[in-house]
Design a protein around this nucleic acid. Structure first.
Ligand code: MN
Ligand code: MN
Ligand code: ZN
Ligand code: ZN
Lengths: 146, 146
DNA sequence: GACTCAATCAATAACCATTCCTGAAACGGA
DNA sequence: TCCGTTTCAGGAATGGTTATTGATTGAGTC
């Protein structure tokens, strides 16, 4: 997997014209290390362990470039910093409102929704996303056990 | 319509224990005047026209109380301030990424989606929402005409 | 109508994720 | 190597929102 991804990534950088700097590579590595859906701050903390000189602003810049060239995706929940995802396949993510953990929700097809929306608005639809919140099993357990 | 709503609103205030102050009433009136889906700032500007002494913070407080007792709803788009809506029925809203205008999207049924999500995650789902962005007819026209 | 006490208010400071700005450093081509 | 362009780190600034504070209001009671 790493090999394939690496090739894809190089290709996307080449096509975009951006250069694959060590910082951008470090951000990418941190992103796959920090299993889950880390925030910019999470990524920053991981990157800093190996290279303490990197600034948070640099991480934001790198994430923005990586998203722009299609190597990663960002997801937004209100009342929470943006989360980043290496999984580019269309899928749903749910966020625990108590601890912030994000997990993927497999097996829910959203096909056709965007088309149905487009058919019912004079707007030109450019993006649709499902925002899902809940309680993770751990937090739900603690709440009941308390 | 104002009569019915007014009765409902008084009832919701009574049940909640909050008092229906002049500022809260002013925020509510501004909200129905400013047809559409105004931001806190929009509401503030309308309120200020009648009562210039009101502070922006007061408007935020009032909006938060009104939402808590179920008189209004808030919707969030990333890269845009929160919008407020008097329409409490489940419905979709689309936001123009260019001018910020929000419009309702009628006729799209979302029934069953939350159940399907719940069936595919160990999380306890507490909220699902559809985030929709696009270009309003006006902005789309300007883009093509330019 | 005055009294009381909690709720509410206006104003302002603080917050926090993110973006912007800057001068310095690194890079890539001639 | 030299030159022009990116990219970088660090820090300041931004903008929507929330928290804090002391003053004001107002419903209930006499
Ligand atoms: Mn995901
Ligand atoms: Mn609406
Ligand atoms: Zn949790
Ligand atoms: Zn528009």
């Amino acid at each position: 997997m790493p090999e394939v991804r690496d090739h894809d990534i190089r290709e996307k950088f080449r096509r975009s014209g951006y250069t694959l700097t060590s910082q951008r590579r470090a951000v990418l590595e941190a992103l796959s290390e920090a299993r889950g859906h880390p925030s910019a701050e999470d990524v920053y903390l991981v990157v800093k362990r190996k290279n303490p000189r990197v600034a948070l602003g640099t991480v934001y810049q790198a994430l923005s470039v990586l998203e722009e060239i299609g190597v990663i995706e960002s997801k937004h929940w209100s009342e929470s910093p943006t989360r980043y995802d290496l999984n580019l396949a269309p899928h749903l993510d749910i966020r625990c409102v108590r601890c912030g953990d994000v997990a993927e929700v497999p097996g829910v097809e959203m096909d056709g929704v965007e088309e149905r929306i487009q058919a019912n608005t004079p707007y030109e639809v450019t993006r649709t996303a499902m925002l899902i919140e809940g309680l993770c099993p751990k937090c739900a357990g603690e709440r009941n056990g308390a």
